[in-house]
Design a protein around this nucleic acid. Structure first.
Length: 482
RNA sequence: GCCGCGGUAGCUCAGCCUGGUAGAGCGCUGCCCUGGUAAGGCAGAGGUCCCGGGUUCAAAUCCCGGCCGCGGCUCCA
């Protein structure tokens, strides 16, 4: 790096960046320096903003991110035997009276009247999922196989006190990767442990977040026995039985996956005890622990929806449980924590801008060719379903342009095309590595096809594909954003 | 909901205490330069100072109310 540039870098933030470091080291310092106040609620300009209290609006970048994640999650669950549903945001409040929410959860619900009928905005998806199960039982009788698993990216709205809103980590409208499993009592333990394994592979393969004692603990969330009947639905005996059963399952999981488990008295859902995945994420204000995924045990809703009776009528003498579960918990919370943890670096499959192509013009006769090749690479990547942008730069402006890319939209891949590449029919590719936080540079041949570049891209998508069976290809030309 | 801090150019912010013509850096536009991976140079354009009221000859600045954001408490996914 030239002395003049070093000097320029010292001034804006008053940082001493002299010494024996390479540009990646400066990058790390700048990553912090550029957004010194970027705190946990990172809903950056590239992804969206708040349109009201607790109401996140996902913008263009956030739209691609969410849709890609949705495709991954839908496929992830479908190939594991979950049926996919999509249920309404509005409900007659009769449904939530039946489920008990209007008695035990009303203070968190939006309730209103239209034409003298009372409606609610759904705060949870479970009543709808149970209706779907019941309608399948009614139509297909014992051909419905248990455990019956139903998944939805379910957007719910809950009233949260205005002062408790916390960026993307605590909002009023959020989306659960929600599923309900109706399982015979005897299979409940295995079902729960399978769910935990699903949670582990999603975290590890899709997001590169290993589940271990360093960043994860389990919270066994139990009732407060003194509040049964007021805050918690059901009887003392039912809670007692459910909690000891879940405790045993939780300790087995903790042992198998080598994570800690601790008890949270009074932390249960109103309908049953649960196991919560508490994850520590590094943010600018230090390491914080957040509840992410959850596995919940429910003996109340099945009774209220007469599921016990229908199951006995159809399958004979069999008792079932309902497992509520969300692997990420809330998309908004998870994404918010993830963006903060990785300073806005997303896995390739979900990054709004996946490949930034920088056309380096040098003022020479090869500039036309540089432009042509850049446009061609862009078109070819677009036709393969990738999100790309072309940014024109110059030899002297390159460094500054790279800096803007790395501090804003942060594409996983940067492809440099200048006179040198054009002459040699190559592409200079810089690949960001989430694990090390560095880019590695490589040069690939660029002839008639993009074969070698596509190999690099497919490698980036590999673990997502392994986990979910897909790697979303939602193309976009985002050149205006760079 | 409670306590504290904040809202000024597309972005990050200074100015406010002590009222008197709206500021900087980056981005953007234009020109110049240039063997290249986190700031090359010069010039220019760009503002409903969050909204509403009050005080004042005069309000970004002082006062009151509201909205939104941030940190903490409480609560949650």
């Amino acid at each position: 790096m030239s002395p003049s540039r070093l000097k320029a870098m010292e001034n804006p933030w008053g940082r001493d960046v002299s010494g024996e470091k390479d540009h990646i080291d400066y990058a790390h310092e700048l990553d912090v320096a550029i957004k010194p106040d970027s705190t946990v609620p990172l809903i950056g300009k590239e992804y969206g903003y708040f349109s009201g209290p607790g109401v996140p609006l996902f913008s263009i970048g956030g739209g691609f991110l969410r849709q890609a994640l949705q495709q991954i999650l839908v496929s992830f669950h479908a190939r594991r035997g979950y049926f996919i549903a999509e249920t309404p945001t509005l409900a007659s409040s009769e449904l939530f009276k039946l489920s008990g929410h209007m008695d035990f959860y009303r203070e968190n619900m939006y309730v209103f009247n239209i034409e003298d009928r009372e409606f609610t905005v759904k705060p949870m998806n479970c009543p709808y999922h149970l209706l779907i199960f019941l309608s399948h039982l009614a139509r297909f009788r014992n051909r419905v196989k248990l455990p019956f698993k139903i998944f939805e990216m379910g957007r719910v709205h809950r009233y949260e006190p205005s002062g408790s809103l916390y960026g993307l980590l605590r909002v009023r409208g959020f989306t659960q990767d929600d599923a309900h499993i109706i399982t015979p009592e005897g299979e409940a333990a295995r079902v729960i442990s399978d769910v935990f394994e699903e949670m582990r592979s999603l975290m590890e393969l899709v997001f590169g977040l290993p589940i271990d004692e360093g960043n994860v603990r389990l919270r066994l969330s139990l009732s407060d026995r003194s509040q049964i009947g007021t805050h918690f639905m059901g009887s003392w005996e039912e809670w007692s039985a459910a909690e000891s059963a879940l405790e045993e399952i939780a300790s087995k999981i903790a042992e198998k996956y080598k994570v800690k488990v601790s008890r949270g008295v009074g932390e249960a859902a109103f309908y049953g005890p649960k196991i919560d995945l508490m994850m520590s994420l590094r943010g600018s204000s230090g390491v914080k622990e957040w509840q992410m995924g959850t596995i919940q045990f429910d003996f109340n809703l099945p009774r209220r929806f007469k599921i016990y009776d229908y199951v006995k009528e159809i399958y004979g003498d069999m008792n079932v449980f309902i497992i509520h579960r969300a692997l990420l918990g809330s998309i908004e919370r998870f994404i918010g924590g993830y963006l903060e943890h990785y300073k806005g670096r997303l896995p390739f499959s979900m990054a709004p801008l996946q490949v930034a192509i920088i056309a380096i013009k040098a003022g020479g006769e090869l500039d036309v060719k540089v432009e042509e090749v850049s446009e061609r690479v862009k078109r070819e990547l677009l036709s393969r379903g990738l999100r790309v942008a072309v940014k024109e730069s110059s030899r002297t402006g390159l460094s500054g342009d790279v800096r803007l890319l790395e501090s804003s939209i942060k594409p996983p891949l940067i492809v440099y095309i200048g006179p040198k590449e054009v002459r040699e029919s190559t592409l200079a590719v810089a690949v960001y590595d989430q694990r090390t936080g560095r880019r590695s540079n490589m040069s690939v041949k660029y002839g008639e096809t993009l074969e070698e570049l596509m190999k690099i891209i497919e490698e980036q998508e590999k673990s997502v594909r392994e986990a979910s069976g897909v790697s979303p290809r939602i193309p976009a030309d985002l050149s205006h954003m760079v």
